[in-house]
Write a protein that binds this DNA or RNA. Structure first.
Lengths: 137, 137
DNA sequence: CTTGACCTTAGAGTCTACTCCAAGCTTTAT
DNA sequence: ATAAAGCTTGGAGTAGACTCTAAGGTCAAG
């Protein structure tokens, strides 16, 4: 069990952020100590890792909340509903991956083309690198 | 040459957004008509595509501005400086790709594992899917 | 047994990235 | 020729995601 400050340190986020996420129903501490302190367990840690990763690749907290609430059970969502929603997200993620790979290629091109040789290149920007990638695509 | 409204339509953004980017030095229209209207060309269009893509995969406008200003020339940055900066970004992008692939695997797992069979799964969440992926990683 | 670090809540403040509004000029359609 | 649509600027307003402040309770170390 981690106190809020301990979890925050492990994750390199602020305690305020953790309380903010709780307030907005992304993650609440599994239980509380008798003194009222929040107590987080390893599952909470895992969820936070997920949130941080998802945020890093461009998902909003609302989207992340939706993803976290994805559960197949009789009361809430049917299997088909979850499947449809998830497949949509899957397509989004695949698109992001494609774009990142393209992005990566541009950067790689910039490093190689502009700084590969001995002499200094004088007119070498991310945009001219992108131009080439766009031409290929 | 596109007027601001035309470019906005092509890109599915608002004219306000284009003016906002100009104000914050991400992209200014290449020239102006005699009446003062902004006129954008295909290069501007290309830059906007880059901005939109970069934003979609989690880069902030400031980071994007930095990327766009990457140019190798004597006055501003040396080849080595650009190379170092770009390689850092490259690592960031590679990390994002790894995370997205992992993310994708989780979602795939959710679709397959929870909705593959005929009967309804009752305890099937993105988190249990993630648990498996984490176990592999 | 008190000092300092850490915890609580409630609420205010900040930064980013838009988004909207007002007042006025230009262009296009009827 | 006049109205609607689109452009200009400057500035205000908003949503999302924190971040900070105040006022107070808890706990380990000296």
């Amino acid at each position: 069990m981690y106190k809020i400050g301990e979890l925050a340190k492990i994750l390199s986020v602020s305690t305020d952020t953790l309380r903010y996420y709780e307030k907005h129903n992304l993650l609440s501490a599994t239980n509380r100590a008798e003194n009222g302190y929040r107590l987080y367990n390893n599952n909470d840690l895992r969820i936070m890792h997920f949130i941080i990763r998802a945020k890093g690749v461009g998902f909003s907290l609302n989207e992340i909340k939706e993803l976290l609430s994805l559960k197949v059970d009789k009361e809430s969502h049917s299997c088909d509903e979850v499947k449809t929603f998830t497949e949509q997200k899957l397509m989004q993620v695949e698109k992001k991956i494609t774009e990142l790979v393209r992005f990566k290629d541009s950067l790689q091109l910039l490093v190689n083309a502009c700084c590969g040789g001995d002499e200094e290149a004088t007119n070498c920007s991310i945009l001219s690198a992108l131009e080439n990638v766009d031409a290929i695509t």
